[in-house]
Every structure is written in structure tokens, then in C-alpha cells.
């Protein structure tokens, strides 16, 4: 017998179907939870962090983590060479990593979508100019390009975002261009043209909603990459300037003491590893669920 309630319920949308697929992937859901945990840490850092991240205490210089001899439970992960609490600095450092990661992806994806849609839909010289620019930028090694830009612009939060976004937009741009090339040949795009729709309408209202899922998926996975790049810049001293806590500069700080005080570099390194891994797994889960080409 058929359930009456089941019949009267409106069929679910594509988005709801995809979301249900995603929720069925336990590893991806757990990774998403980890990412959200980091985001919460970043937002509520002043409430969560046990100590001020920048208060130095030379008596606690290179104090080991709590479970090692000489450690203290109030300084769970130990202290660095200036006696600052490592756990508090990791919590505050999450702000930098997540903020820069999100800001770079936001800027790069916006530019990438505009450039990719224009290149893929308008074709002609617009496509030639944008595609060649993309090819040229892809030819540069990413980190060296960013180092060069940072050296020119000088350090600072906005400059890091710009230095990374300068090249990062290429990735969403290529995805959007490719998807647009395929979608523009669809009959519903031709139908919109037959109805007298403008190019702007077709690009934004007809094509964009249909190519958004792969873009979101790629951007999520790229965010992990950007977080590593920010850490690399900070490690090289070109990122966020001291005393602001950043995971990259914390790893760099501990480099000199890595043999005798391993905890100074190791814990921020593990934080990078955990966040990047979580974003990647969550991103792949998103891709499996939302990108129709990965179904089945």
C-alpha cells in the first residue's frame, strides 16, 4: 500500500538530493565538522584561548607540553622561545589562516567567474586575451610569484590576500570557462536567446546557476591550498608580521629549537595538517555529491 503522505509531499529539488548524498558520506560530514570547529575557534578565540597569545613570560621559555616532564596543565601544548602559550597562539592563528584562505578564495572566485563566463560565452578576442593571460600566469611557479609580489608590495594582511589572489583566480576561471563552453550549447541557452534575452541575462541567470556546483567544489579544495601558501609565506617571514600569531611563522619560530623543543614547530604544523586535510576531504565529499559527473 502506498503512503498518502509520501505522495502529497513535493518531490525534492536537485539540491536536496545532492545534500542527502553528501550527508550519507560520513567521513565528509566529520571533516566538515572539523572545519566548522576551526571556524568557531577563530571566531571565539578571545573566549576560548586560555592565555593572551602575545604575553611573554621568560620563566616559561620553551616550557614543554603538559604531559612531558616539566610541563604544566594550564599551558597544555607548552610555550615557545619567548614563553608564549602555544595553544593560545594556535587558536588565534586559526583566525589568520581561515580569514586569508576565505578572503583569497572569495576574491579569486569572483574574478574567476566573471573572467571565465566572459571568455566562455563571448568567445572571440575576449576569450583569446583571457585564456592567454591564464596560460602566462600558470607558467609562473605559484609561491615564487607570491614571494615576488610580497617583496614588491611589502608585508601586510591585505597584501597577502592580493598576492595570492593575483594568481588564484586562474583556477576557477579555467573551470568556469570550460563549463560555460559546454553549457552555452545547451538548448535552453538557445531558447533564452530566441526569447530575446541579453548576453548578461544568459550568462548570469541561465548559465551560472548550472555551473556553480563544480566551482564551489573546486574553490573549497583550493582553499586548503591557499592556507598552505599563506603558511609558507609566513614561514619565510613575508606573511603576517610578528607578534601576530600565524601558523606558518610559528613553525618557522620553532625551527631553531626543533631538536630540543620539538613542540614549538610541531603543534602549529599539526594544526595546518588537520585543517587542510579536513577541507580537502570535505571538498571531495562535496564534489562527489554535487558534481553530476561523479555520480555512480
Amino acid at each position: 500500500m502506498t503512503n498518502v503522505a509520501e505522495i502529497s509531499r513535493p518531490p525534492e529539488t536537485i539540491f536536496q538530493q545532492n545534500l542527502r548524498n553528501f550527508m550519507g558520506n560520513r567521513l565528509a560530514v566529520a571533516s566538515t565538522a572539523v572545519v566548522f570547529l576551526f571556524i568557531l575557534l577563530a571566531i571565539f578565540a578571545p573566549l576560548i584561548a586560555p592565555h593572551d597569545p602575545n604575553t611573554t613570560d621568560l620563566f616559561r621559555r620553551l616550557q614543554p607540553p603538559a604531559w612531558v616532564e616539566g610541563g604544566e596543565w594550564s599551558y597544555l601544548l607548552g610555550c615557545d622561545q619567548l614563553g608564549r602559550d602555544i595553544l593560545s597562539r594556535i587558536i588565534y592563528g586559526a583566525r589568520i589562516s581561515i580569514f586569508i584562505g576565505a578572503a583569497v578564495i572569495l576574491v579569486a572566485t569572483t574574478i574567476g567567474i566573471i573572467a571565465g563566463l566572459s571568455a566562455g560565452y563571448l568567445r572571440g578576442w575576449v576569450d583569446v586575451v583571457i585564456s592567454r593571460l591564464v596560460d602566462i600566469l600558470l607558467g609562473f611557479p605559484y609561491l615564487i610569484f607570491a614571494i615576488g609580489l610580497m617583496a614588491m608590495m611589502g608585508p601586510g594582511l591585505i597584501n597577502i590576500i592580493l598576492a595570492l589572489a593575483y594568481k588564484e583566480w586562474v583556477i576557477p576561471c579555467r573551470v568556469v570557462r570550460g563549463e560555460t563552453l559546454a553549457t552555452r550549447e545547451q538548448e535552453y541557452v538557445e531558447a533564452a536567446r530566441a526569447l530575446g534575452a541579453s548576453r548578461k541575462h544568459i550568462m548570469i541567470k541561465e548559465i551560472l546557476p548550472n555551473i556553480l556546483s563544480p566551482v564551489v567544489v573546486v574553490s573549497t579544495i583550493r582553499m586548503a591550498h591557499v592556507i598552505i601558501l599563506e603558511a609558507s609565506l609566513s614561514f619565510l617571514g613575508l606573511g603576517v608580521q610578528p607578534p601576530t600569531a600565524s601558523w606558518g611563522s610559528m613553525v618557522s619560530d620553532g625551527r631553531a629549537f626543533i631538536l630540543e623543543s620539538w613542540w614549538v614547530s610541531t603543534f602549529p604544523g599539526l594544526a595546518i595538517l588537520l585543517l587542510v586535510l579536513a577541507i580537502n576531504v570535505a571538498g571531495q565529499g562535496l564534489r562527489d555529491a554535487f558534481d553530476p559527473r561523479f555520480h555512480e
Binding site: 536537485i14 545547451q186 538548448e187 535552453y188 531558447a191 546557476p209 548550472n210
Partner: peptide
């Protein structure tokens, strides 16, 4: 199937 935008 192809002439209607699936997202609208």
C-alpha cells in the same frame, strides 16, 4: 529535456 533550464 535539453530546452528547459534545470535550475529554474
Amino acid at each position: 529535456y535539453a530546452s528547459l533550464n534545470p535550475r529554474r
